[in-house]
Design a protein around this nucleic acid. Structure first.
Lengths: 251, 251
DNA sequence: AGGCGTTTGTGAACGTACGCACAAACTCAC
DNA sequence: GTGAGTTTGTGCGTACGTTCACAAACGCCT
């Protein structure tokens, strides 16, 4: 029944008194983690909420509230211990154990993802590649062989894979998702531009590059409407007619 | 001063009586648009809010409220005219004119993005590729030549580019962003895992693949903690101690 | 030991977003 | 023309997220 739910409640469904993190906070923790790793490499032992907030690109009050949700260890008058905070966040995110990931669809994008080295340093290991195209099966990418999609259940079980990435064309995505769920995968990152329907208990997050560009396009449209239309008065019933005021952009 | 702001207010800064779209609505419009195109191809002339909501993976009430914000033309008792609604949304998103996009960084990911055909059908045209590596300059990808990054101002002006995609390593991203802004780009889609600092009036959206996986990891962690700990009541003051795991995955 | 400056953690106010539920508006059949 | 059925548009209650502002807690200097 459950359609795709990007912003699923992070909470335990039962009534346990578990410190539930707001979903918005969960989405920011990885940013903090990245900033913290950078600080650690730069030689910082401690950091103030102000400093970390700047490094992560957020408001310092928001950062403090976020960290307070995980009962964080800051020291008043000093700040946060960088190493300790890294350990805390990694623990909360479940990154203390390295997670194994399957990637389905070794086309243009899948190829790039398989070759991206950034995952290894952020707690993940791409453990298996799959494709339905017999022409691609057997190919090696970055030292990993491409399996036939039919071997999904076998490999998922053997490698203890719980997260999968779908990088197939949109037409194939739902079928792939079904196969993944049947094989025991419970978290899916979907790059295909389509809505996936999955059972309850399975999380889906979506990344659609065209959607991101279209959102930017909206703001671009808005900006240019503001700057280029010095006037364009009452025209009957046209919806949305940004109109007016030549506002000079900064720079 | 402005750090990166994904969720920027969509509103006109002045007091004009403009139908300001909530940012959350703007983020969903591209989803509706995709669903509508799919419906149009499938032969639908009209669609109810219920039907479109299902296709886009959202609640029907939310969809109706979103569409009402742009003064949309639905007909009570019938539904929405698919073609009309497509035109409306494309107009609001500024997609009536095809937007030209520059892509900086032709590495692993940039290569895949340059080769991705999906942009063309969604209102965008990748008009130019750039890289700082002299070894890559001159190379042809998908019929497009890779320019030296130093030709940025020239090409951006010639092609009337207002949106750019950064697919460089994190270390280079800020410098590239500065160059883009200097060249006149006012919207940036950033794939590099770092915070970009840009002047006011420039929009930045970020896509970080590792962040998406880490969010999934959190839920995964949560799920396994729930399934393996049938009970684990009041444990004093331990912050989040999901602990353990030898997860029995579903199915 | 005590006071001062700094920084965290959080209560409270505010704003935004969501979803229900219903009246208004429309089509269609007769 | 009238009534029945369908679907939109939206007012309202509620939940969530953000920001401000301040008291409590800490280090450090004297």
């Amino acid at each position: 029944m459950s359609q795709q739910r990007n912003g699923q409640a992070a909470g335990a469904p039962d009534g346990a008194g578990f410190p539930d993190l707001p979903e918005a906070t969960v989405a920011r923790l990885p940013e903090y983690l990245r900033a913290l790793h950078h600080l650690a490499e730069t030689g910082f032992d401690t950091v103030s909420s102000e400093g970390l907030a700047a490094a992560a690109g957020v408001n310092s009050a928001k950062l403090r509230k976020d960290l307070s949700h995980l009962g964080s260890y800051g020291t008043r008058g000093v700040g946060y211990d960088v190493a300790l905070l890294i350990a805390q966040i990694e623990h909360v995110l479940g990154l203390t154990q390295r997670r194994t990931v399957a990637l389905v669809g070794v086309g243009n994008l899948g190829h790039a993802l398989a070759g991206y080295g950034g995952f290894g340093t952020r707690g993940f290991r791409i453990a298996a590649l799959f494709d339905a195209d017999p022409g691609r099966v057997g190919e090696q990418i970055n030292g990993l062989p491409v399996h036939d999609i039919r071997r999904l259940p076998e490999v998922v079980a053997a490698e203890a894979i719980s997260i999968a990435v779908i990088a197939t064309p949109a037409e194939a995505a739902q079928q792939v998702a079904d196969q993944l769920v049947a094989a025991g995968v419970t978290s899916i990152l979907n790059f295909a531009p389509c809505v996936l329907s999955v059972p309850d208990g399975v999380d889906v997050r979506k990344v659609d590059l065209a959607v991101e560009l279209q959102i930017l396009s909206f703001h671009e449209h808005r900006k240019s409407a503001l700057t280029t239309l010095p006037s364009h008065p009452a025209n009957g019933r046209v919806k949305i007619r940004p109109a007016l005021n030549g506002e000079a952009l900064a720079t």
